[in-house]
Design a protein around this nucleic acid. Structure first.
Lengths: 148, 148
DNA sequence: GTAATTCTCTATAGATTTAATAGAGATTAC
DNA sequence: GTAATCTCTATTAAATCTATAGAGAATTAC
């Protein structure tokens, strides 16, 4: 399941994507408009900032804004930042591979085999769908056109 | 992430799939061979039994065995029984749809749009890959051949 | 330069979920 | 009737998730 936190992160990013570019938006504005607890959202945006998805400015005319165009912010990246790897098992991750603690033989593990496929098909979608793709309704075609 | 419990369930089912059909296998045998805590495995197998994936027999010559051929036990079903819906959001599930608590407008929700696609591509794999598919190494071809 | 406003950061707390254990009960084979 | 097995309910310990609190740092406006 996607965490509440990741859902909040996406809502915030989509909200920023719809705002005037480079116009700083208050955390409190996003929180109010998107029904996200403000203090919680602060942590989330800070995290997104550390990972280079948004920039911020302090002080009276401060706020947050996207660090790159919406067409270059992909769902896959957001989810990885907030919730961790897309794969359903550590050993099925390609960006954050880890051996499973109790694995007997990874080479022949049937569970891993299947979950690697799931991971790949998931990543194919999430790493190719950007904020702007879903905003313009282009998501469906893009994914179908990608040969997935 | 797949829960430890679901991993145990799959290991147990694959173990049963490799055993002589209709020969009851002790919980303790599966637990030992697959390094699964026995008491925990009891609960899991009971759950799988209630959902018709395995049968059991009590008493001295008791044990567990598959309720149907390995080719008819699919990963999707196992995961749904143990971990719940495949979808990453309640509103993106097709077998257990629920509205998200804090959803403003489901029709236009961009997050749902993307996660519905992820759910579908995941289900396409997990509902078409059976225990026997991964045992015989047929999984890869099957999935590619399915037009996914 | 000071007050007001905003983001930044660390700490903590409450609720929920996960993973596992305990122990008594029911059934069967011998 | 006894030993072995599955069945069932309850409980617990640890981890994770969802938030909240409050002090600190930067910026703007005056």
């Amino acid at each position: 399941m996607l965490s509440q936190k990741a859902k909040y992160a996406m809502r915030a990013l989509l909200y920023l994507a719809r705002a005037e570019p480079d116009r700083p938006v208050f955390i409190s504005e996003i929180a109010d408009e998107q029904s996200v607890p403000k203090k919680f959202l602060e942590l989330i945006l800070l995290d997104l900032k550390r990972h280079g998805l948004v920039h911020s400015q302090r002080g009276k005319k401060g706020g947050y804004f996207l660090a790159k165009p919406p067409s270059q912010i992909f769902f896959g990246q957001v989810i990885r930042i907030i919730d961790g790897p897309l794969a359903q098992l550590p050993c099925a991750s390609r960006t954050a591979y880890r051996r499973c603690d109790d694995c007997q033989d990874e080479k022949t593990c049937e569970i891993r085999k299947v979950l690697l496929q799931v991971r790949d098909s998931t990543a194919r979608i999430l790493d190719n769908t950007s904020m702007s793709d879903v905003m313009t309704g282009r998501a469906a075609e893009l994914v179908e056109g990608a040969g997935i």
